[in-house]
Amino acid sequence: MSTQNQIDYHRIAKAIEYIRTHYQFQPGLEEIAENVHLSPAHFQKMFTDWAGTSPKKFLQFISLEHAKNLLKEEKASLFDAAYETGLSSTSRLHDLFVTIEGMSPAEYKNGGKNLDINYHFSESPFGNIMIASTEKGICYMAFEINKESALGNLKAQFPNASFSEKQDQLQRNALSIFEKDWTRLNNIKLHLRGTDFQLKVWKSLLSIPMGKLSTYGNLASKIENPKASRAVGTAIGSNPVAFLIPCHRVIQASGHIGGYRWGSERKQLILGWESSHIYSGDEN
């Protein structure tokens, strides 16, 4: 991410944090712009370019009431219906294109021995990102600031693998998920190291359409283990692939956002960004 993009991203993040913490007072454009030291006109343009909607509309998307309404919309059949509409629904397009293949028991047990992993640092609307892939698919994706610690985290996941810093087509295809024209996406394949239970939870996350939300309890019920909310939460917290496996769409039953492996502020950013792209047609 360029220096200017980093500055813009942090300003947007600061603005959204201000909106989130002052939502009950309904801050206006001038007040938010002043908080990030920009003129109202400049801030309005920067924010709209990033979010695809106005600060005022975005404020609605990240409110507690919006989250509660989304949870109310979740139907019992959501888990089974997530794939039924093909390409007809933009809100489901993201998830239709992501498939998960678990690593073999041997690959899981030996920490990635004989695996060749390519990794690359890139940028996203939500900050710098590291993405890594095997010949079968994406095996790791995380929002990272420091490259050295990021590589250390990746190697901890696959202590016996071989690593090369280079970008491949699998990575480029996956990163295209951040573009606005999702109709041109190819299938995104993930090659993940996890227990059977973790893989089941991660696959269930793909059933939550973009712009919608679920809770830990609902996910536990949908994988036919209603008493496993705590275990589901642990599996979600160990998700190795940011954004593509949408663990950010799981919130508390109260409507509060809750925690996130890569920061609750970033989770708020992502949820607002997704809602703005799904509901931008409702802009007044």
Rank of each mutant, 00 (worst) to 15 (best):
S162N: 13
Q171D: 03
N186L: 03
K136R: 15
I223H: 13
F126P: 10
N186D: 15
K136S: 15
K147R: 08
E144H: 14
L199Y: 09
L192Y: 09
N218Q: 12
V241E: 03
E179V: 03
G194C: 03
N186I: 01
R193D: 02
Y140C: 01
L175H: 00
N160E: 05
R193Q: 12
A156G: 14
G194E: 01
F243E: 02
N239K: 05
S133R: 11
Q169M: 02
V232T: 12
Q198T: 08
S124M: 10
G194R: 10
M141S: 14
L219N: 12
S238W: 07
I188S: 10
I208H: 12
P159W: 08
V241R: 08
L244W: 03
P159F: 15
L192M: 07
I177G: 01
M141F: 04
G237W: 04
P240T: 11
P240Y: 07
N186W: 02
S122I: 02
I129E: 05
N146Y: 05
E179H: 08
G194S: 11
K166N: 14
S122E: 04
H191M: 07
S238A: 12
D196C: 08
K222Y: 04
F178C: 06
N146D: 12
N153F: 13
N153M: 04
L206F: 12
M130G: 14
D196H: 03
L192S: 11
E224Q: 13
A228T: 14
L175D: 00
T195P: 08
P226A: 07
N160F: 10
K227Y: 09
S221E: 08
A150M: 06
M210R: 05
L175A: 00
G194H: 07
F178T: 03
N239C: 06
R184P: 01
L192G: 06
